[in-house]
């Protein structure tokens, strides 16, 4: 029991755990829509894109959150509109828009080397640096995302299922996708401190695909994916504390192990079902 309680005497662990649980659950919730839209790499790409935005905001002495969220939002909109209005596929659009933005960030860092230290934390996540301000931002983004998903649940579901047909049924798909892009950009910014740019993509995708293996129900997928994200956020923090590895990496590794277990379990169930269902021919 002491093992579980002892880390909470440190303020950084308390802050980090609150942030990890909220970010883990939030990424997993938003990730359901991302996975079902076949845009699994958007999280990975956008997290790189906002890195460029964060660097620009720093140089222009802009507020970090405003700069990075605006940059991420514009990148997400550019991707959406490129996919909607051209024949370019989602993965190609993500690749072009986000890598260009990341390249800008890298170029600026190499030009102004003096602040490269703090951007290491952005790349790999740094639980030690979670401030009350960061937690306030994460709580605000969590409330905003939950509000949007709760009250636009049906519109988001139909738009994700078939955007073109949803439009015929009177759903303002352009606005739904625009709101979603804004929320996604905000989630990624909120998650950067804990997960790091390089790990956010996995935190968005791994919990939904793990639960997707186990259920065919949309609302169950949303609920269990969020729970899985939050629980792995908590357990990942303990792992990070005791094994002394980066918080983002420990959360993603834990999620990946659970994914492998789910995959193995489903394969075993299917194999057993095939054995039961396959008729035996020939003389018996």
């Amino acid at each position: 029991m002491d093992l579980l309680i002892a880390p909470f005497q440190y303020e950084f662990f308390r802050n980090g755990t609150i942030a990890a649980v909220l970010v883990g659950g939030l990424c997993a919730l938003i990730g359901v829509y991302i996975v079902l839209r076949g845009m699994s790499f958007i999280g990975h790409g956008l997290s790189h894109a906002v890195f460029g935005g964060a660097v620009v905001a720093f140089i222009l002495q802009f507020n970090f959150y405003v700069g990075a969220v605006s940059w991420g939002f514009i990148a997400a909109l550019l991707i959406n509109q490129t996919v909607r209005k051209t024949t370019i596929s989602a993965d190609a659009a993500i690749g072009v828009v986000t890598t260009a933005s990341f390249a800008l960030g890298v170029a600026l860092i190499s030009r102004y080397r003096r602040f490269s230290q703090s951007f290491d934390a952005a790349l790999f996540g740094n639980v030690l640096g979670v401030t009350p301000m960061d937690i306030a931002v994460i709580v605000f983004v969590t409330l905003a995302a939950t509000f949007m998903i709760f009250f636009f649940y049906k519109q988001l579901l139909f738009t994700t299922f078939n955007s073109e047909v949803a439009q015929v049924y009177g759903i303002p798909t352009f606005w739904i996708e625009t709101w979603f892009a804004l929320i996604l950009a905000a989630v990624i910014i909120a998650a950067v401190q804990i997960m790091g740019v390089t790990m956010i993509g996995a935190a968005l995708v791994v919990p939904p695909i793990t639960i997707r293996l186990l259920t065919d129900s949309f609302h169950r997928l949303m609920i269990y994916s969020t729970i899985l994200g939050a629980v792995t956020g908590l357990v990942g923090m303990y792992l990070s504390f005791y094994v002394d590895v980066s918080s983002g990496a420990s959360i993603v590794l834990l999620q990946s192990i659970l994914f492998c277990i789910a995959l193995f379990y489903v394969a075993k169930i299917r194999h057993r079902r095939r054995l039961v269902e396959t008729p035996v021919y020939g003389p018996t």
């Binding site: 049906k154 579901l157 994700t160 299922f161 009177g170 259920t215 065919d216």
Partner: peptide
Amino acid sequence: PQIETVDWSFPVTAEEVVLMGLDH
């Protein structure tokens, strides 16, 4: 729409698809 445009792996039941048609 044409049946080929539907993502058949999408996690929804027949009833959930029908409910999508209601005025939200």
